[in-house]
Simulated assay, not measured.
Amino acid sequence: MTINSEDKAPDFCLFGIDESEVEKEFCLSELLKQEKQLILYFYPKDNTPGCTQESCDFRDNYARLTLKALVFGISRDSIASHIKFKEKHGLNFPLLSDPDHKVLELYGAWGEKKMYGKSIISTIRTTVLINKDGKIKKIWNNVKVKGHVDEVLSEL
């Protein structure tokens, strides 16, 4: 599926852990009621170098980001993996689990990519900014980690 700026963000519900590591269900329709923009960043795997750096960059800029938006990390990892990842790196925002990659597919963050010279089907590092009205404001595809959070901040 392809989504574009100005499209209505596809609704979803996923289980994850909140800021306090409490497991709960997160639904886009409920998140939008908080009257803030939403940053959904889709990443391949907990505790891998690039994903750790990206998550820590969101963590380190959390106070600046949350002036205007809520941050959510989404990967195929299990809740148990997310808890370990969150504890190890002191992450201060929710992590959602999408083991069947259904939401990844809805948001264009699942598909073919090159890894070590081979084509594989996997998570494509993607960030989506959703405005308060539930429309997609900006999509970053094939995200390069270095400097990415600064790009998100400047868009906010």
Rank of each mutant, 00 (worst) to 15 (best):
M1Q: 11
T2K: 13
E6R: 11
A9E: 12
P10K: 01
P10A: 01
P10G: 02
D11F: 05
D11H: 10
F12L: 03
F12R: 02
L14F: 09
G16M: 04
G16V: 09
G16T: 08
D18K: 05
E19P: 00
E19V: 12
S20D: 15
V22G: 00
K24H: 02
E25M: 12
E25I: 10
F26K: 09
C27V: 05
L28D: 08
L28T: 07
L28W: 05
L28C: 02
E30K: 12
E30P: 00
E30F: 01
E30A: 04
L31W: 00
L31T: 00
L32Q: 08
K33V: 01
K33A: 02
Q34R: 14
E35L: 11
E35T: 13
K36Y: 03
Q37G: 09
Q37M: 11
L38H: 08
F42E: 07
F42M: 06
P44H: 09
D46M: 04
N47E: 13
G50R: 06
C51I: 02
C51Y: 03
T52P: 07
E54T: 04
E54V: 03
E54I: 04
S55P: 06
S55H: 06
C56M: 08
D57A: 02
D57C: 02
F58C: 09
R59Y: 10
R59H: 11
D60F: 06
Y62G: 02
Y62D: 08
A63P: 00
R64W: 02
R64K: 15
R64P: 00
L65I: 13
T66C: 13
L67Y: 10
K68M: 07
K68C: 07
A69R: 10
A69T: 12
V71L: 03
F72W: 09
F72N: 04
S75L: 07
R76S: 14
S78L: 07
S78W: 10
S81D: 07
H82I: 08
H82W: 09
I83W: 03
I83D: 05
K86G: 03
K86Q: 13
E87K: 15
E87M: 11
H89I: 07
N92Y: 08
N92S: 14
F93A: 09
L95V: 11
L95T: 11
L96E: 11
S97T: 14
D100Q: 15
H101Q: 14
V103R: 09
L104Y: 08
L104I: 05
L104P: 07
E105T: 15
L106M: 15
G108T: 12
A109Q: 12
W110Q: 05
G111S: 06
G111I: 06
E112V: 14
E112D: 14
E112N: 15
K114Q: 15
M115H: 12
I121T: 14
S122E: 12
I124Y: 01
R125F: 03
T127C: 00
T127S: 06
L129K: 04
I130C: 06
K132I: 15
K132T: 15
K132N: 10
K132G: 09
D133M: 06
D133V: 02
D133L: 09
G134T: 04
K135Y: 08
I136Q: 05
K137M: 14
K138I: 00
K138R: 10
I139G: 00
W140K: 00
N141V: 01
V143F: 01
V143K: 01
V143W: 01
H148E: 07
E151N: 15
L153V: 05
S154F: 01
L156C: 07
